[in-house]
């Protein structure tokens, strides 16, 4: 049983984008704040802090979820992946990112990291979704700039059958994703 009292800063160890690391946080620290200001990865954005906008979405053990509705301490021992992990070390965009660029799927780009992470999870479970399924998952995100059309087109491109073989997510030992079901 893990116990942390409210004023106590505790060491939280996790795997972030494939690297084991740790930092201190009090129990009420939100994972979004912990990632951005504790661990210095500012690619995960915060747009509402009450679970609606979706721009804070990250993967925990492969599962896309709102980091503003997750406490840092809940991610202890887990594998967390953020948008910073998607491109290659040389900066080369992965297929999903490239499809976003190809289809003008972002303007200000503030909502984009969350959407990329949602579909990193979703396309790994369901590599060739229908447009309706894409829209269904995308409806968990708010974008104020694009009107969404470019985003839908990008995800269609990234999940078209000719993209077979692209792995969006290297599976992890602690992969907790459920198979997709409509």
């Amino acid at each position: 049983m893990r116990r942390v009292s409210k004023d106590q800063k505790t060491r939280i160890a996790l795997t972030l984008n494939g690297r084991k690391l740790a930092a201190e946080a009090e129990p009420r620290m939100l994972l979004s704040d912990f990632l951005r200001h504790g661990l210095g990865l500012t690619g995960t954005h915060v747009g509402c802090e009450h679970g609606v906008c979706g721009c804070c979405t990250v993967l925990i053990d492969g599962v896309a979820q709102r980091s503003c509705l997750t406490l840092a301490v809940q991610a202890e021992g887990r594998e967390v992946r953020t948008v910073e992990s998607l491109a290659g070390a040389d900066g080369k965009l992965n297929a999903l990112q490239q499809a976003f660029r190809n289809n003008h799927a972002l303007q200000c780009g503030f909502c984009t990291p969350g959407i990329l992470m949602s579909f990193t999870d979703f396309l790994a479970r369901n590599p060739h979704p229908s447009e309706a399924e894409i829209r269904e998952v995308l409806s968990g995100h708010l974008c104020r700039c694009t009107g969404y059309a470019g985003i839908v087109a990008a995800i269609k491109e990234a999940s078209s059958p000719k993209q077979v073989g692209i792995m969006y997510l290297t599976s992890t030992q602690s992969d907790r994703r459920e198979p997709f079901s409509a």
Binding site: L86, A87, G91, R101, F110, T112
Partner: peptide, 17 residues
Amino acid sequence: KTLRKEDPALLSGRGRY
């Protein structure tokens, strides 16, 4: 379609907001 100059950084979590 134009490939925007802005996009690589924004798509990689390297924006500077």
